[in-house]
């Protein structure tokens, strides 16, 4: 197990360095003067240019600048936003819980519906159930989620008025942030109705974000189940007279879950991409919307830092998935 960790880290570290080189160099590939871009000023005298250039350390050789940046990143200094002047890491930590909360809710929906759907489809292979469920899954997989979100807003926020259009909680409520997770904070505040307000704000965005992972998990569960169900040990279990529930629920499902867990892990990257669109549609104050806003504001240090942080998160999650895979499937440990 420890060997597996070391081998994965040996690949991860060069990849992270490569990611940091890309995040560092893209701002210097931009058309235009990086000094002006980084300072956010449009007109400047040559003296001011030299002064800011020295201040930002951009008058030094590129390699030194890179190691300087890398050193900053490793000690938690990602620089500051041009627009708000706040440190990037502080902004990131302030917005990250919103994205995590949304992603966890979406993942719960995706797993809670996707795995049963896949299992049922596999058990009733070829039936109306199977075709119907897999048809729906393919539609979900093909869904342009930004449009799906707008449709849900038209139906549930416009016509039926069940859910609010945007934000994380009604403006009526105000309470201090303790964990950054609105569901927990609203409970801790003890205010009446705060929790249900948070839930109703969360409902539509998490359905939208869950759509594609749900479809992928259902399809993957079905094919993994089909493979396992045709194996000898399942037939033996059936022949022994075990109840169908025990055969499928205990014997088959456990082995079928191995590839499904990998799929779930890989969906986290998909979710972060989906969060860009979902958060934009629902004005959800998370890192996806933050990145899109920064692209539009040409807030290059934020784009640079955000890119690096998001890549680091995805790589860490993938590492954890790999290790878990090793834990549940002893065959690949060596």
């Amino acid at each position: 197990m420890f060997g597996l960790l070391l081998r994965r880290l040996a690949v991860l570290i060069p990849t992270f360095l490569g990611v940091s080189i890309i995040a560092f160099s893209f701002i210097r590939l931009l058309p235009g003067d990086p000094v002006m871009l980084l300072s956010g000023e449009r007109v400047m005298s040559p003296e001011r240019h030299a002064q800011i250039s020295a201040q930002l350390g951009m008058d030094r050789p590129m390699v030194i600048q890179y190691f300087d940046y890398l050193g900053g990143v490793l000690t938690g200094d990602f620089g500051s936003s041009i627009v708000s002047k706040k440190p990037i890491l502080d902004q990131f930590w302030a917005l990250f819980p919103a994205t995590v909360e949304l992603s966890i809710c979406a993942m719960i929906i995706a797993v809670a519906l996707g795995i049963p759907a896949g299992v049922i489809a596999a058990m009733k292979r070829g039936s109306i159930f199977d075709q119907g469920l897999m048809g729906i899954a393919l539609v979900g997989y093909s869904m342009p989620i930004f449009w799906w979100g707008l449709l849900l807003i038209i139906l549930f926020s416009g016509t039926l008025q069940w859910f609010p259009v945007s934000g994380r909680i009604s403006l009526m409520f105000y309470f201090p942030q303790v964990t950054g997770f609105m569901l927990i904070d609203s409970l801790l505040s003890g205010q009446k109705g705060a929790f249900s307000s948070a839930i109703s704000h969360l409902a539509l965005p998490s359905i939208v974000l869950a759509t594609i992972p749900l479809a992928v998990i259902a399809r993957q569960t079905r094919s993994a189940m089909l493979e396992v169900l045709s194996e000898d040990y399942v037939r033996t279990a059936r022949a022994k007279g075990l109840s169908p529930f025990r055969v499928v629920g205990v014997h088959a499902l456990r082995n079928a879950m191995i590839p499904v867990i990998t799929t779930i892990g890989l969906q986290i990257g998909v979710m972060l991409a989906g969060a860009i669109l979902t958060e934009t549609i629902f004005s959800w104050p998370g890192i996806g919307k933050w990145m899109v806003d920064s692209v539009f504001r040409r807030d290059y240090p934020v784009i640079q830092g955000g890119l690096l942080l998001i890549a680091a998160i995805i790589m860490t999650v993938n590492l954890i998935v790999d290790l878990m895979y090793g834990l549940i499937n002893p065959r690949i440990r060596h």
Binding site: A273, V292, L307, A311
Partner: peptide
């Protein structure tokens, strides 16, 4: 290099 490209969510990378 391919690992590096895959480390970013594709839409975010395309956007940037």
């Amino acid at each position: 290099l391919m690992d590096i490209i895959l480390a970013f969510p594709s839409l975010l990378l395309a956007l940037v």
